[in-house]
């Protein structure tokens, strides 16, 4: 069945699943989960090399020979300035000019700082980055990020790693309805149900890490999420029925068998 492809900054993607690379039990499970997910876009963080054990965290060594679109994030940044610095470092790797702007101050909620996020998005978009800001699910802010040059906007469903699902479907619906760039639901999803909900609301894709990496069986969950994305997207494209208060019989009664 033909499905419309997601295109970001002119790049047509083979999957609507953006997968994080943190917190898996081990590199083997991670690679199997990546394969099962079918994801083309993988996210990463940028950190100092641990000089005592330099190859311990070097994640890319486990992915050599496979082809992905790398989406490094600016996690750890508390200000636009820090995020911009991390973005430039990520680009200097020569691996990608895509950047997920992620700026959080509150360690308890890790909610994105909207003002710093907007600032960083503006600067980085002007510098030629493909900017995908992780943002709160505020329709006005999401529009402002688009106007600032974001190539896609990534509102959170709930705080990172909580698995609470989509706390404000009304807002997310508005964000999607008014957007002229792809909307990727990033953070807070817990299970396939949340993914289907996001996709049925019309999201262009979802970004997940913890719900896959910390599932009892990450590989199986990656597969479940992949299918949920496909089911939700197909359902959205197919167009669901209107909800009604009372029943409608599936078969009319005109030729009902009576005595």
């Amino acid at each position: 069945m033909k499905q419309n492809k997601l295109t970001i900054a002119g790049k047509a993607l083979s999957s609507r699943f953006f997968l994080g690379t943190g917190r898996y039990p081990n590199p083997f499970v991670q690679n199997e989960a990546i394969k099962a997910s079918g994801a083309e876009v993988l996210t990463f963080a940028i950190r100092r090399v641990n000089l005592g054990a330099p190859n311990e965290d070097a994640i890319l060594q486990h992915l050599e020979g496979m082809s992905f679109t790398y989406l490094p994030n600016t996690s750890g940044a508390k200000t636009a300035e820090e995020a911009i610095r991390i973005a430039r470092l990520a680009k200097a790797s020569g691996l990608s000019d895509w950047i997920k702007v992620e700026i959080s101050v509150d360690e308890k909620t890790l909610l994105p700082d909207p003002i710093e996020t907007l600032k960083a998005t503006e600067v980085l978009a002007k510098e030629g980055f493909v900017v995908l800001p992780y943002t709160s699910d505020d329709p006005v802010l999401c529009k402002r990020l688009e106007e600032a040059g974001a190539s896609a906007v990534m509102p959170g469903g709930a705080p990172i790693g909580t698995g609470l699902g989509i706390l404000n479907p009304y807002n997310l619906g508005l964000i999607i309805e008014q957007a002229n760039v792809p909307i990727i639901v990033d953070a807070g999803l817990g299970s396939a149900m949340d993914v289907v909900q996001a996709m049925e609301l019309g999201a262009d894709g979802v970004l997940m890490n913890t719900p896959v990496a910390k599932a009892k069986d990450p590989v199986k969950m990656a597969h479940a999420m992949k299918q949920a994305i496909e089911a939700g997207r197909l359902s959205y494209e197919a167009g669901r029925i209107q909800k009604k208060k009372y029943a409608t019989a599936s078969s009319g009664l005109a030729s009902f068998v009576s005595k």
Binding site: G22, R47, D57, I160, N209
Partner: peptide, 10 residues
């Protein structure tokens, strides 16, 4: 000097 790399992240 800073030496940085890609690590696992979401």
């Amino acid at each position: 000097i800073e030496l940085v790399q890609f690590v696992g992240g979401g």
